[in-house]
Amino acid sequence: MKRIVPIILLLLLAFFLLSAIKINFGQPKTGLSQYYLNHGVADTGALNIVTAIYLDYRAYDTLGEATVFFAAALGVFMLLRKPGEGEKD
C-alpha cells in the first residue's frame, strides 16, 4: 500500500516518456550533424568528429563542464578534510 504513490507517478511519467517510441529508430534526423560530418575535418583539422564538436564547435559546453568538474572535486576536497587541516592561525 505504501508504494502506491511512486507507482502512480511512474506510470504517469512512463505515459509521457513512452511517446518517444514513435521516433523512427536508425534514421538520420537533423541536418546539423550532416553539416558537421561534411565540413568538420576541413573546419577544425580533427579526424575525430566527436572531438571536433566537443572542443571546437561547442567549446563553451566544455568550459562549463570543466568548471563543474573543478567545483565538485574542490567540494569533495573541502568536505572530507581532517579536523583542523588547512586552518591558519
Partner: peptide, 19 residues
Amino acid sequence: MVDPLPQAVMLTSIVIGLV
C-alpha cells in the same frame, strides 16, 4: 556515419554524472 552530436553532448553528461 552515426550522428556525432548526441555523443559529444553525452560525453559532458558522463563527466557531470561522475563528479
